[in-house]
Design a protein around this nucleic acid. Sequence first.
DNA 1: ATGGCCTTGGTACAAGGA
Length: 260
Amino acid sequence: MVSTLKLATWNVNSLSVRLPQVLDWLAAQSPDVLALQETKLTDDRFPFDALAEAGWQAQCFGQKTYNGVALLSREPARETQRNIPGFDDEQARVIAASVGDLRVIGAYFPNGQEPGSDKFAYKMRWQDALREWVRAELAVHPALVLLGDFNVAPEDRDVHDPVAWAGQIHCTPEERAQFQALLALGLHDAFRLFDQPPRSWSWWDYRNLAFRRNQGLRIDHILVSDALRARVRACTIDKAPRRNPRPSDHAPVIVEIEAG
DNA sequence: ATGGCCTTGGTACAAGGA
């Protein structure tokens, strides 16, 4: 029997609010690794105990009110790295660790707010730094997964209404070029390694009945390195948690990788 | 319609998200 590793990413929009849903989802899906974004918790408030009781190890890197990332895993994580080395950042957006034979980088990319804004410039600068660090990580760890909330819809087919969104945040040429520059390091969008249903999104606005109308964006991604590409068996978006009462606005994305 | 929802902080509403 060939065993597979299951990794997932989920922007939970407050781990305090979503903890019961995260525990339910972990029990149902039993992933090997779950990368969380927007935990919105300082590390002293991280729910280690509830997760440990359910059998999950946790590495966290949080801050008050905004951002915050974590890696949950069945097996202990090694060589944990918080944020991008050499890039001075007050915002908690990256947590990386080794699990099994994989290097796993969980990331919450800046939103960017509006093209031309200071926040957009930060989004670009942050991605320049991330890319150079990932390049170095790939040289040391060829079996690498970069997953998280990338805050970019890579192509028009990742947008429910490409005309309305043209040039808007998440859809600008600059953001899409950044995504392509990541792929150019030798990474692959795991979701697009497979035939997928049309109109597949990972985020739906809370407003306008957007989920019911399936009006969303695919902005949460899992990139796998060249060395892993042939081992990827599936990549899916799990819409079920978006149907929960009080859901996150994002759905989890899951990848299955043949064990090395 | 520069909207509509959700979360935090904090206790009214502003900021941020996408």
